[in-house]
């Protein structure tokens, strides 16, 4: 019977979580809508004429004008925006002139590669950061704490693009342990072990800074929580110290660490730009840098929009997770 009531209780909790998630998803719609406005108008500010960029500087004015008309660029800006938005909602992000393929295809392909890289990095930095933070707090001012604090300092001060080069030099060139570029071997690769081997160095590089940030915050948060009265209560009722730290204190500390992990997700996805460049990873960051250089505006628009929207969703996920741990938030 108590077991059964427990099940009911769990379903009640999860029910409110679904409602909360739904509310947050609805609230995310105007944000994403706002993103489309910002993305479109930032791009519209770009000086110069896309048609000239596409046709090259030798094009005749007639050709330029007819291409502009074909692209709808002769219409007022708000009309262009509405057309773009209507197409977006039908899954049409336009066509990349430099690649001569639909933007959506290119963006999704590249974004999934970035997700693999950034997702791995995020998992690494969450685990390592939390672990380092807990250890640092438990052994405050001890050798472990001092060592970890030093490593965190080095971590948040190291440029990711430079660290990537060092790793390539050491593990790729000197030791020849790991591949240093791309996602798969060109010949014969393509399976999961191949992907994982290619992932190690870029994911580690990408995770470094975020690990430092999370470790720092976890340490501070754990120290704050460990002074609370309810920790004394746990000790007073005879809870073993290991559980006091890993259960009572950690759960409370997580409430303030999770939103920061959500924010770090944005830094990790953004930081992927450098890491992808260094490791020749076929992700969306490298795509964007190239698209900016070639002035492929539709491609930039599509890429920026997809990444920004995914960031909104990452933060939403963090909020839901936080809510799952702390029942006080939704009520």
């Amino acid at each position: 019977m108590p077991g059964a009531s427990r099940v009911i209780h769990m379903s009640q909790r999860s029910h409110s979580i679904w409602r909360y998630t739904g509310e947050r998803l609805i609230a995310a719609v105007p944000v994403i809508f706002g993103l489309t406005v910002i993305v479109f108008f930032i791009m519209a500010l770009i000086p110069g004429d896309p048609a000239t960029a596409i046709l090259g500087s030798y094009a005749t004015p007639d050709n330029v004008a007819s291409l502009n008309a074909q692209l709808g660029l002769d219409k007022p800006l708000w009309q262009q925006y509405l057309t773009w938005l209507t197409n977006l909602m039908q899954g049409d992000f336009g066509r990349s002139y430099s690649l001569n393929r639909p933007v959506i295809d290119e963006v999704l392909e590249r974004f999934s590669a970035t997700l693999v890289l950034a997702g791995t990095a995020l998992i690494i930095c969450a685990i390592m950061g939390l672990l380092a933070g807990i250890l640092s707090a438990v052994y405050q001012y001890g050798v472990t704490d001092k060592g970890l604090t030093l490593m965190v300092l080095i971590g948040i001060s190291t440029p990711a693009f430079w660290l990537g080069l060092l790793l390539i030099l050491f593990f790729g060139v000197e030791l020849r342990w790991l591949p240093v570029s791309g996602m798969y071997e060109i010949y014969g690769g393509g399976d999961l072990p191949d992907l994982l081997r290619h992932l190690v160095l870029p994911a580690a590089t990408l995770a470094l800074v975020a690990t430092g940030v999370i470790a720092r915050l976890t340490r501070g948060s754990m120290l704050e929580v460990l002074r609370q009265d309810y920790i004394r209560t746990a000790r007073a009722k005879g809870v073993p110290e290991r559980n006091v730290v890993l259960k009572h204190a950690f759960k409370a500390a997580l409430v303030s660490v999770i939103p920061v992990i959500g924010i770090q997700a944005g830094f990790v996805i953004g930081g992927a730009v450098y890491v992808e460049t260094v490791f020749q990873w076929p992700g969306i960051g490298r795509m964007l840098v190239t698209a900016i250089a070639t002035r492929d505006i539709l491609l930039v628009q599509g890429g920026v929009l997809v990444v920004a929207a995914s960031y909104v969703l990452f933060n939403l996920l963090a909020d839901v997770l936080q809510n799952l741990i702390d029942p006080r938030i939704s009520s």
Binding site: L35, V39, I42, I269, V273, V307, V312
Partner: peptide
């Protein structure tokens, strides 16, 4: 709402 570096790139 934009990832930091992405906004700089834009």
């Amino acid at each position: 709402a934009f990832p930091y570096i992405l906004l700089a790139l834009a």
